[in-house]
Amino acid sequence: MKCKDVNSKLIFFLDEELPATEMQAVKEHLAGCTDCALFAEDMKKTLSILETEKTPELNPFFYTRVKAKMESQEVEQVLNHRPVLVRVLQPLAFSIILLIGIYAGIKLGATGTTSKTKTVLAEQDMIPYWNELDAEPIESFLME
């Protein structure tokens, strides 16, 4: 048996899946060929990793985690399954309220500027009558 043939059958040889005659032929070849024997050893070691991974350490809190995940998914589902009208109408209502607010703000701002000038003027006219302290200095008041 040639090296190429052995290398193509090695995985089946290691799994003992070859017919008896071929098993014997590969075994004899490996006994006399260092290169193939080294690769066979390397492959055996690599494939043996599968055996060590078969017995995982089990998480003792696995069931608790499953329950917690299930509950969190249920809460999410409840939130996602609100009626379509609520999901559409709620943002729509908020948008309308916001727009009304902005519009009202602009309107109030516009009316505020005109009335302000008027009220400022009116205040200035009224000062002498309402606030005598502004019209008459305190010193002259005390002097009297």
């Binding site: 991974e53 078969k54 995982p56 089990l58 696995f62 985690r65 995940k69 299930m70």
Partner: peptide, 27 residues
């Protein structure tokens, strides 16, 4: 759980991912 976690691990080759997917399997 051993059967499910091991099957998931055989395909994912990551212990945390395997446990996470196994939890979804049971759900």
């Amino acid at each position: 759980r051993k059967l499910v976690v091991n099957t998931c691990y055989g395909l994912l080759h990551n212990r945390e991912d395997a446990e996470d997917v196994a939890q979804d399997v049971f759900i």
